[in-house]
Structure formats: C-alpha cells, structure tokens
C-alpha cells in the first residue's frame, strides 16, 4: 500500500504555483508561431500560387475589371485555415506573413476574414496592329524566305 507522490504533493503546497496568470500578464507567442495572417496587397502579383497551395482552400480571389486595370481582392478566411503557412512559404513575393498574434477568439465571423485589394496595372502592351498589317508582315516574312 504505497502512496505515490505524497512527498511531492506536500512539498508543492508550500511552493509557488506554476500557473501563468494569463489575462493579467500577457504572454508573447514563441518565435515563428503561425497566427493571424498579415497580407501586403502592394507586394502581391496575383500569381495564384497561394490559392493552389492552400489545403482547405480558404483563400479566394475576386477580380474586377476597372479602367486602369483589374481590381483584385484576396480574402483569407482564417475560420477555415489550418495555419500551415504553406501560402506564406510559396508566395514568390512574400506578400503573406503569419504573425505571432494568436488572439483569434471572435464572436462574429467577420473578424476572421483578412482581405486586401490592389489594382494590377497590366504592362503596356505593344500597340495593337490592325488585322491587314498582320497579314502583310506574314507575306513579307514568306517572301523573304523564298
């Protein structure tokens, strides 16, 4: 009839308890903790790698045609995110970054949505030649070769 941990239990009554009184003392998340997403729209080039790589598919993109280019908004719905940070790793421009902010307890769903929009100006296209010019170029090309 041995009583395990008896000495340890009695000793620990007189020691300081090892509880971190969290709400009073704010606790920093450890280095490299994958928390809330920070999205930098200016760095993004709308390559779509993050969408393809995201397992739960919680990244959605809406493209809107406007006169100076496409207005693209990226929505990171963190309610469906598994915080695996693959999107951050695959983003060629490093536009997505998972911060150490772990305070994700929300009462309404909107707070979990991180979104950012940017206007993507297309590169200046060479001037568009009318249809016959294209024909002539092909004929000269053909004549040159004979």
């Amino acid at each position: 009839m041995k009583f395990p941990y008896l000495k340890e239990a009695i000793k620990s009554v007189f020691k300081k308890p090892s509880t971190e009184i969290y709400p009073k003392v704010n606790k920093e998340a450890p280095e490299g903790y994958r928390g809330k997403i920070n999205y930098y729209p200016e760095k993004c080039v709308n390559c779509g790698m993050c969408i393809r790589v995201c397992a739960p598919g919680c990244i959605t993109r809406t493209i809107e045609k406007t006169e100076e280019g496409d207005k693209i908004t990226f929505n990171f719905y963190q309610g469906q995110c598994t915080f695996c940070s693959l999107c951050a790793d695959f983003c060629p421009r490093g536009a997505i970054e998972l911060t150490k902010n772990y305070h994700l307890a929300v009462t309404d769903e909107k707070d979990l949505l991180v979104s950012g929009t940017f206007i993507k100006k297309l590169p200046p296209k060479p001037p568009v030649q009318p249809q016959q010019q294209v024909q002539n170029q092909q004929n000269q090309g053909a004549a040159k070769t004979e």
Partner: peptide, 21 residues
C-alpha cells in the same frame, strides 16, 4: 455559434480569451 475560437488547434490562451467572451 456564440464564440468561435480560430486556430488549428487554438492556443490555450486563445481558448481562455474565448471563454472570457
């Protein structure tokens, strides 16, 4: 759902926050 605590899995501190809410 009254309170939803995101995170997969959420940090215990986040759960305590959620419970406070």
């Amino acid at each position: 759902i009254d309170v939803s605590i995101a995170g997969c899995p959420p940090k215990p501190e986040a759960i305590i926050d959620g419970l406070a809410k």
